[in-house]
Structures are given as C-alpha cells and as structure tokens.
C-alpha cells in the first residue's frame, strides 16, 4: 500500500511536468488551430538558457530557493522571447496560408532548433546545475515526500493557478477566449488578434520554461534533443484531454504521468513509452475529441 501511494506521488509529480508543457500545445492549438511542433524545442532551449546562466553567475553548485527562482525566471524569459520570435518570424507570415503549410513550417522550426542546438550547445549531454538538494521533506508512515516532488508540485500548481486566473479573470484572458472562439469577430469588436496570438505564445512558452527547469532539477542531464520525447508525451496528454481545452491538458497530463509511473512500477519500464502511445491510439479510436473535448458535427 505504501508503495502504491509513493507511486501516486511520483506519478502526479511527473504528470504536472507534462501538464506545464501540454498547456503550451493546447493553448496555441486553441487559438490558431495549429500544432506548434517547435514547442518541445523551446522547452529544450529553456533548459540550456538556465544552464548557461547558472554557469555565468557561478551558481551551478549553489542549491537553494534563490537559485531555483533565478533559473525559473531566466528560463521563462528566454522561452517567451524565443516563442515570440518563432510566432513573429515563422507563423505570422503564414496566417492566411493553408493549415498544412503552417504545420510543415512548425516541423521545420522544430528541426532547425534541434540541430542548431547540437551545433551551438554541442551534441554531448550536459549536467544541469544543482537547483536543490533532494531530501526527504516529510515522512508519513513509509511514504516519503521528497523535496524535488514537492517543489515540482508547488511550482506547477502556482503556474497553473496563475494561468487559470489570467484566462478567466482578466481582459487579455477574455480576449484570448474570444479570439479562440472567432478571431474575425473579435477583431471587429476592437481586439487585435495578432497581439493576442503573440501573447499566447509568450504564456505557453514561459510555462515550457518552468517545465524545463523542473525537469533539469529532477533529471539533471540535458541535451539538444531532450525535448523530443517529453514533447511528444505532452502532446499526447493534450490530445488525450481534448486539444484546445486547458483543463483537459492538465487532466491528460496527470493520466499520462500516473499511468507511466504505474507501468514502470508494476509491469516493466520497457513498456512505458509503448503504453503512452497506446493510450493515444485508444483515445483516437473511441473519443477522437479527447476526454474533455467537444466533438462538433458540422451542420450542413
């Protein structure tokens, strides 16, 4: 029983990291109806930005809250700027182009970032700065609550609550929902869709930045292709929850994190990825719109 609870905690911790990245996919999809394949590489750049900045400040072996916050801010700022640049330079010129062109461009941007990363950062893995010491924070029975998991949970929950507030309580959030619902009408009511789209990229990318530091803390080996697998899984999580639906992305990510942890714990770690993509296939067959997605039948 203790084992089981321990696995739940680990699974939720992993799931909340997936959620941070899945939110970026789902928000951009919600507003532009496109899959931003470069999102996982924005996440990778966030990790490297934090790595180099920590070395620059000489705080790579200086674990503590201050280091954590500094690196979170650095990764968020760098990711937002990169996300903004990608939107401005790669996607905006194609706003009126067919969806397929934008999709292919997104794949291109993704490959560009991955291989530029190998040239600029080097293909060899780097060791992420020690953000925090991993120690047992609480012990309830035999269940250990470690500082890493608590940090991951706390930071993700704060980030998601901030996002929730932003989307549902502020004018820019309302504008985001309006543009997502119907961009041309929003424009006629005085909302500048380009600004809202750029803002969406900033928010989504900065959440990926948060994710990158948390992953770097937990699995401190970073390389330019590190975004591939986690990006794919976050994408599956977004589809699982219903792409375009913010709550769905979080739900999907938690399911992914938990099921992955359970597969590793009770079956075999060989099947962790197979299981993740198995879920995707099943969802696409039985609920193509995702768990919380609305499947709309086009009226004729």
């Amino acid at each position: 029983m203790q084992d089981f609870i321990q696995h739940i905690i680990n699974g939720v911790s992993l799931g909340s990291i997936y959620a941070l990245i899945a939110l970026g996919y789902t928000m951009v999809y919600g507003i532009l109806k496109m899959i931003n394949f470069a999102h996982s590489d924005v996440y990778m750049v966030g990790a490297f930005a934090a790595y180099y900045f920590a070395r620059f400040l000489g705080i790579e072996n200086n674990p503590g809250i201050a280091t954590l916050i500094t690196l979170l801010v650095v990764a968020m700022v760098c990711c937002s700027l990169l996300g903004l640049a990608i939107e401005r330079l790669a996607y905006r010129p194609l706003r009126k182009a067919p969806k397929l062109n934008i999709l292919i461009t997104a794949i291109g941007v993704s490959l560009f970032l991955e291989y530029s990363g190998q040239v600029v950062f080097g293909a060899d893995p780097k060791v992420f700065p020690e953000v925090m010491k991993d120690f047992v924070l609480f012990k309830i029975g035999d269940v250990e609550l470690k500082s890493f998991d608590i940090t991951v949970l706390l930071v993700s929950v704060i980030a998601m609550l901030a996002l929730e507030f932003l989307i549902f309580k502020t004018k820019i959030g309302r504008a985001m929902r309006a543009v997502s619902s119907n961009a041309s009408v929003a424009s006629l009511l005085g909302v500048n869709p380009d600004r809202i789209i750029a803002f969406t990229f900033i928010v989504g990318s900065s959440l990926a930045g948060v994710g990158s530091v948390l992953v770097g803390m937990k699995y401190p080996k970073i390389d330019p292709l590190m975004g591939m697998m986690i990006g794919l899984k976050a994408f599956v999580a977004a589809v699982l929850g219903g792409i375009g639906n913010v709550g769905g992305a979080v739900l999907g990510a938690l399911i992914m994190g938990l099921s992955e942890e359970m597969v590793v714990a009770y079956l075999s770690s060989t099947y962790r990825d197979a299981f993740a993509f198995g879920i995707l296939i099943i969802i696409l067959i039985f609920r193509p719109a995702g768990l919380l997605g609305k499947y709309s039948v086009e009226k004729v």
Partner: peptide
C-alpha cells in the same frame, strides 16, 4: 449570428468593452 458561443452572455459583452 456570430456570438462567442462557448462564452457566457456577459463575457461576450465584456470583450467588446476591452478597448
């Protein structure tokens, strides 16, 4: 009719007041 369908009646009006 082109309302923001998923949004509430009030939100539809609030968006127009943003500017």
């Amino acid at each position: 009719i082109r309302l923001f369908k998923g949004l509430t009646v009030l939100d539809n009006v609030l968006i127009a007041g943003h500017q």
